[in-house]
Design a binder for these strands. Sequence first.
DNA 1: TTTATTTAGGATAATTTTGTCCGAAATAAA
DNA 2: TTTATTTCGGACAAAATTATCCTAAATAAA
Lengths: 144, 144
Amino acid sequence: MFSKACEYGIKATIYIAVKSMRQERVSLKEIAEEVNSPVAFTAKILQSLAKSGIIDSHKGPTGGFQIEEAKIDTIKLHDIVHAIDGDKIFVGCGLGLEQCDANQPCPVHDKFVGIRNNLKVMLQNTSLYELATGLDIGLTHLKR
Amino acid sequence: MFSKACEYGIKATIYIAVKSMRQERVSLKEIAEEVNSPVAFTAKILQSLAKSGIIDSHKGPTGGFQIEEAKIDTIKLHDIVHAIDGDKIFVGCGLGLEQCDANQPCPVHDKFVGIRNNLKVMLQNTSLYELATGLDIGLTHLKR
DNA sequence: TTTATTTAGGATAATTTTGTCCGAAATAAA
DNA sequence: TTTATTTCGGACAAAATTATCCTAAATAAA
């Protein structure tokens, strides 16, 4: 469903959010360890999340990644996915047709649009805050 | 959502079904033209669909692909996807965790399971017959 | 039986995605 | 100012997916 990049990006962002709620910055190294992702690849993903303004990065000793606390409940899962994978999972025909819409639909058009809309709504309604809170109170986990 | 292989496979199967409802076999060449897919790659996919028993293949002149007519409305979209992509879109954690279930869920577990179940139900309830009929009566299309 | 046609299947290539490496730039602390 | 630490960013490598090519096998018709 999601690309590996997206999986790592979501996990990393949730972990950063938990730490940010305690006013802590976290290093790339710590993130990669805690979410069980390849360090260098994770660095690339965090870079693009930083460029998108979702996370804040800081170089040097005491540097690392953090999320502005006020942002944590305005950021939605949708934003993270969009920053990493772009809109490719939200647009386009389910069977890869260039011309496919309600007027000239592919055979699976309606059903596909339905499912994808479910996904979109879910992503738009899921806040980083709720994901981070669930992790923080031990309801969910990120490793293994 | 689906792999390219799956997209081609679904389109090809629907096209073969339409022809089969008229008791006609179709050649690889015709299929690839009609569904706008790379010939040789499509050949591989049809091969695996034949091995799965979803389509029937026949060599030699007047050969080609066909689907047993009685099968057309028992075959579901689910079967086609499963034959090509296996169960990877139906199982596994949304964030790639090895251990993720209701007892020890990842942060998106519940929401992800919900969406994926929608998808699964849709695929299981969509028959090849309805897809082929829609194409046959010109309600839907496969090219471009 | 020969020939033409069509799928099967193995080898190989191109592209995309995933992942690594390393020096540069920034920056905090000694 | 020097040093240690950390992210940035470009180049490179590995793996997976997508796609091509070619010969073999099957088979129908001449």
